[in-house]
Amino acid sequence: MGDPREPGADPARLPGPGPQRGPTGYPVTVADCAGKETTIAKAPTRIVTSNAASLEMLLQLGAGDRVIGTGFPPGKGTLPSALAEQGAKAPRTDLAGIEDDIRRLGAVTGTAARAEELVTGMEKRIGEVRTALAGVPEDERPSYFAFDFDAGTKQPVAVCGRQVANAVITQAGARNVFADCDADFKPGSWEDVVAKNPDWIQLSVRNRGSEDATRKAYDDAEAFLRSFPATQGLKAVQEGRFVRLGSEVTTIAGVRNADAVRQIAATVHPDLVKNGQ
């Protein structure tokens, strides 16, 4: 058997699921969502990401200086200031797949310890919410509609069960009204939304680059729902049950999904989850 540190050598295997590493960290073998394995001989120095989700994970891991390009770069204000998917047959109801992606990226970039730290933090925040909501039966959890204001107002876009936002909503103790559509996103109709008559509506807008501009976008989204004939009579609109939460932390897979879980839970279950705790 060759030296496991040399490219082309058989990587050492560690028991259990997750990345398999050699004794010095490399080579490392990771499996994709379909189970196909790829072996990385040494830490990559030049990385191209396909989208903003992968870019944010790499930045959180501290490997951002190795990124030389992004297929679909994030818009202005998309990433948190500190940093400047897998489609499944069944609905996403937890963030385990995202945590696995963070671990894979950590293994490939040589930042496995940081990856585990991030995942541990996510699990802690989500676990606190899960514990707080343990006594709330599934069928008594409030219904929830994520209104993507930036996708347009003529035809609402349904956030479906395969989108990461469905997992965020579910972990936060709410029921996505469009969880049963077999897609990530799907064009819908206001008639569909009215028929669902959600208990809560998320005003989902993209970061505008400044607090004032983003606040105005939230205000505009709420004003539309209050003035549009089809929605002004909805239960959530009548009672002012709105969740102001950015699109990025809800629909883009990453570490901040755990923060979104806490914020939604603290809003829709204020007696059980205090200030996101």
Results as ranks from 00 to 15, higher is better:
M1K: 11
R5H: 12
P7I: 04
P11E: 15
L14C: 15
G18H: 15
P19K: 06
P19E: 13
G22R: 14
P23E: 09
G25R: 03
P27K: 15
T29N: 13
G35E: 14
K36W: 13
T38C: 02
P44S: 09
R46M: 04
I47A: 04
V48T: 11
V48Q: 08
S50I: 02
N51P: 04
A52Q: 12
M57K: 05
M57G: 04
L61V: 02
G62Y: 02
A63I: 00
A63K: 01
A63N: 05
R66M: 08
R66K: 02
V67E: 04
V67L: 07
I68E: 15
F72S: 10
P74G: 14
K76I: 11
G77A: 08
L79A: 14
E85S: 06
Q86H: 04
A90F: 07
A90Y: 06
D94R: 01
L95Y: 00
A96G: 04
G97E: 14
D101Q: 02
R104T: 03
L105N: 13
G110I: 05
A112T: 14
A112R: 11
R114P: 03
R114E: 12
E116F: 06
E117K: 14
E117D: 15
E117H: 09
L118K: 13
V119T: 10
G121N: 13
I126R: 02
T131S: 11
V136K: 05
D139L: 10
E140P: 02
S143Y: 10
D148Q: 08
A151H: 11
K154A: 06
P156G: 08
V157C: 10
V157K: 11
A158F: 14
A158H: 12
A158Q: 08
Q163Y: 06
Q163V: 00
N166F: 11
I169D: 01
I169H: 03
R175E: 08
A179F: 03
A179C: 05
A179Y: 03
A183S: 04
F185S: 00
K186L: 14
S189I: 03
E191P: 01
V193I: 09
L203Y: 14
S204F: 12
R206E: 10
N207I: 01
R208K: 12
D212N: 10
R215L: 07
K216C: 06
Y218C: 02
E222C: 01
F224N: 05
R226I: 02
S227K: 13
Q232P: 00
R241H: 14
F242L: 08
R244H: 12
L245D: 03
T251I: 13
I252T: 06
I252K: 07
I252A: 01
A253H: 09
V255H: 01
N257D: 04
D259H: 12
I264P: 05
A265P: 08
A265R: 10
H269P: 12
L272N: 06
Q277H: 10
Q277A: 03
Q277S: 07
Q277F: 09
